Computed example of a mutant assay.
Amino acid sequence: MVSAVPRLRRYARALAGDHAAADDLVQDTLQRAWTRIDTWQHGADMRAWLFSILHNLHVDQRRRPGLTTVALDDEALELPVRASQTDGLDMRDLETALQQILPEQREVLLLVALEDMSYEEIARTLGVPLGTVMSRLSRGRSRLRGVMEGRIQPRILKVVK
């Protein structure tokens, strides 16, 4: 495996076009090969096996949408600071609006927004079908947006004695 590293690096540089990305690709290749060494057939050409792993990783990375990043200089790190006087009011308005949606919708909305859970994780957590999660989220977002924009009047709770 070690003797194939220079050739893997050369191929990775040709594919990636960037030395750092190529080195990462080779490292990922070697890691995957090491963890799956039991899938390599003894007597087969290890170099071909390693190149196929490298190629497949590269194709997977190209298919995966990446984030476009921009290098920041020191001046760009000074971000504007928003006035904090309205933050408390905004939070109070949001809390009030959250109370105006059904508890089932609020649960799903908070799990998505605050806990960054996937729909599948929420469905398992709440013990409901995936479609129910999506429906509750859609309705909750719509109602929350309406309350925050003033289009939907807050619910008035009746006190029963």
Rank of each mutant, 00 (worst) to 15 (best):
A113H: 11
E75Y: 08
V112A: 04
D28H: 10
L109N: 03
L126A: 07
R36S: 10
L144I: 06
T39V: 04
I37H: 09
G127M: 13
L8C: 05
D28S: 12
I152R: 09
G88F: 00
T68M: 04
G131R: 15
A44V: 14
T29S: 02
L54K: 09
L126D: 10
P6Y: 13
W49H: 01
L157K: 01
L15G: 03
R106Y: 14
S52Q: 13
A113K: 11
G131P: 03
V81N: 07
A16K: 06
D74F: 12
R47P: 03
R106M: 12
V112I: 11
R7I: 09
G88P: 00
G150L: 02
L102C: 14
K158C: 04
E75H: 07
G66L: 13
S142A: 14
I122H: 12
V159C: 11
R136H: 06
L137W: 08
D18G: 02
Q105C: 07
S84Y: 01
I53P: 01
P65Y: 08
V81W: 10
A4D: 05
A113R: 03
G131T: 15
E115L: 15
I122A: 08
G150C: 02
S118V: 10
L137M: 12
R92A: 04
D24W: 02
V133D: 00
T132R: 12
R7E: 08
V26W: 00
E95F: 06
D116L: 12
H42F: 10
I101L: 14
I156A: 09
V2I: 14
E107I: 00
S142C: 10
I101W: 09
N56P: 01
L8P: 11
L130I: 15
V2Y: 13
H19I: 04
D74C: 13
P103W: 07
S135A: 13
D24K: 04
L137R: 13
L130M: 15
R9I: 04
P6G: 13
I53H: 02
T39G: 07
E120W: 14
L57K: 05
L94M: 07
E115P: 14
Q31P: 02
R82N: 00
V108T: 05
F51C: 05
R141L: 03
R143I: 10
S142W: 12
A4I: 07
G43Q: 05
L8H: 08
R136Q: 03
H55K: 10
L94D: 07
W40Y: 09
D18W: 12
L67I: 11
V70Y: 11
L30E: 00
E121S: 02
R139L: 08
